[in-house]
């Protein structure tokens, strides 16, 4: 029977198209992009070999370091926010709302499916200060405060981006983590309760350790997504004011397409890829160690 499932021609026909498209459009461009890092120029003007100049330039470019810092700051704040809020939501679903949580889960999830551009423009209008007063500033005014120019300073703009991206994904992480917590056997929880664990101590000593695998995949997924943040920022602040909210993805996009510097753009893209890789491996490693200890 082996020969039927080992039919080389059939394998080629079934796997061929996918492998071909994937290789030509994903794998080859990745290698090609690596090659670009030692060139300067673009598709229209042509390329000249410059050796490692791009790397030297990147190391001394304050904009690159600002972008790296912003990317990391954003990834840390938003990942912590998303996963923490999502975890609180999932605890609420499992232990407080119990069976009636279905409808709440469904409602809280639905910002997840909305296009980022739409959400960003909506938030822009909600936090607007002039010419019309958005709902947030209207509320502040109602309590007697002065309107805040939310997009006027880098710190405020960062706050709005973080709020928006956490708002969008609480429902997602709520459901993701819910699936992990709900699988904890009721017996385990019951015996912990009999031993006197209630409330936070139950969560801290039983629920969190037992839902660690799903918590870990939530963190990895979140870090991976937030390091690559692009849509929310380009639509909400476009990196401004100045370059104060410009992550690596946006800086790469601007150098490549506004200034036509493909070599330098590729170098920045490579830097981003390396950061993604290091962080993922680091989280994975450190959690492995903790698991074996416990």
């Amino acid at each position: 029977m082996k020969h039927v499932l080992g039919d080389k021609r059939a394998i080629a026909i079934l796997l061929g198209p996918a492998l071909l498209v994937y290789t030509l459009v994903m794998l080859v461009p990745v290698i090609w992009s690596l090659g670009y890092t030692v060139f300067e120029g673009n598709a229209i003007t042509g390329f000249t070999f410059v050796g490692f100049d791009n790397f030297v330039r990147a190391a001394g470019d304050p904009k690159v370091w600002d972008a790296v810092l912003f990317t990391i700051k954003y990834a840390v704040v938003v990942t912590v926010g998303q996963v923490f809020m999502g975890y609180l939501m999932s605890l609420l679903y499992v232990f407080v709302l119990k069976r009636s949580s279905g409808i709440i889960r469904t409602l809280v999830f639905f910002p997840v499916v909305l296009p980022t551009v739409a959400v960003a423009l909506l938030f822009q209008k909600m936090f607007e200060v002039a010419p019309t007063t958005g709902i947030v500033n209207t509320v502040i005014n109602a309590f007697g405060g002065d309107s805040v120019d939310w997009f006027g300073s880098g710190a405020n703009a960062f706050l709005i981006i973080a709020i928006m991206d956490i708002w969008r994904s609480i429902g997602f992480y709520g459901v993701l983590l819910y699936a992990g917590i709900v699988e904890i056997p009721e017996d385990t929880l019951e015996s912990a309760r009999l031993d006197g664990a209630t409330g936070w101590s139950l969560v801290l000593h039983i629920v969190i350790p037992l839902s660690l695998p799903v918590l870990l995949s939530a963190i990895i997924f979140s870090v991976n997504g937030t390091l690559k943040v692009f849509d929310s920022i380009i639509a909400l602040t476009n990196g401004g004011p100045g370059n104060s909210t410009s992550p690596l993805t946006l800086y790469m996009f601007q150098t490549s397409f506004s200034y036509g510097e493909y070599g330098y753009g590729s170098t920045i893209a490579l830097l981003l890829t390396i950061i993604c890789l290091i962080v993922t491996v680091f989280i994975f490693r450190s959690s492995r160690r903790d698991l074996t200890k416990a």
Binding site: Y22, P29, M252, I268, A269
Partner: peptide, 12 residues
């Protein structure tokens, strides 16, 4: 391929 950022393949 799931890991690779889109920026890495845009220029080629």
């Amino acid at each position: 391929g799931i890991m690779v950022p889109g920026q890495m393949i845009l220029l080629p």
